[in-house]
Design a protein around this nucleic acid. Structure first.
Lengths: 182, 182
DNA sequence: TATTGTTATACTCTATAACTATA
DNA sequence: TATAGTTATAGAGTATAACAATA
């Protein structure tokens, strides 16, 4: 199975740049993988991560008008509309008229929505401890958490703001798979 | 600052679920932020992360036909075509006829492409050490790297495979920004 | 008949801008 | 006049399927 002449060099996995050993590269890789896998878990609940983000906000603070919610999620109002439509169709959230402003509509979790939040939060917690941090002692996990928070500070991440996540089938890779074949 | 009646509860930032303290959440957040910022760095070179991934593969192993490259990147061949077109227009890569198979075309880095890889790799390394890992001792960084590799193993990430990355303007958030306002 | 690379096409998601109803 | 929510529209990006050349 050896080629001659102008055949491609083999052994790509050996001479790729040091990215595989870089914190930044690993973080990008892990972040995307986690988002994807978490999305897979949410699929069992009939929602996607973006809906989860909205539900989570509604769970935390109910009764906000849509424009405020859109502001907090840092998405355009028009995008929010379709998210709410989705949740409302599934009976997880609902719009109510704002008693103070007849233009506005406030957002609320239904009891189904609250139940879903409880269930999905449990699943997420299991994912955290049983998968992501499997084999970590509490101290190790705590140390890791600390390091990640330092990195977050280095990157200028305020608190819990982060932009987005995988939705569709899957975009183009950053880096060629190295471990695919011998 | 207390409301009555049907007004929204305030203090969202205090009663959001424990995700802000979760490794998984932080990793997702960091991964996305890093991808974005790295994308910003690449913009200075006139390419996007997906092109970087392709260039990186070509840099590692030159002369592969397109179908093999598409396989390695785990993208459809049709998607690869537009990526190559982009690189070829910029003189960073080129297609050559495959001497063994007249259907196939092999992919190669140009000297400009090689130069760009050298430059962008340097920038990426600076990003790694001066930003992401700023304030870390070599030991701390090494420990972090170890932890992240353990997490990667937990998630079933073989070696360097990871699916994708942010392209466009920006998708919908996972989680409502918590630190936005008091 | 199968395969390589390309093109054509449909689909998804996002964002901007028009539109309505209130304020 | 400005604002809340909605709808319409356009744009970017991906994936599937048809296609031409070659194996």
């Amino acid at each position: 199975m050896q080629e001659t002449g102008s055949s491609p060099r083999t052994g790509a996995h050996t001479d790729l740049p040091p990215f595989g050993h870089a914190v930044g590269f690993l973080l990008a890789q892990l972040g995307f993988s986690i988002s994807r896998q978490f999305g897979g878990l949410l699929a069992g609940f009939g929602i996607e991560p973006r809906h989860f983000g909205l539900l989570r906000l509604l769970h935390a603070v109910e009764g906000l008008p849509q424009n405020v919610v859109a502001d907090r999620l840092q998405i355009p109002q028009s995008t929010l509309v379709s998210l709410i439509d989705h949740l409302e169709e599934r009976g997880l959230a609902e719009r109510r008229p704002d008693p103070h402003d007849r233009r506005a509509r406030t957002l609320h979790l239904t009891s189904s929505g609250a139940a879903l939040m409880a269930d999905s939060t449990r699943v997420a917690t299991e994912f955290e401890f049983d998968v992501i941090c499997a084999g970590f002692t509490p101290e190790e996990r705590s140390d890791l958490l600390n390091c990640l928070q330092r990195v977050a500070a280095n990157l200028g991440i305020t608190q819990g703001i982060h932009p987005g996540l995988h939705h569709g089938p899957g975009p183009v890779p950053w880096c060629p798979p190295e471990g695919a074949e011998p």
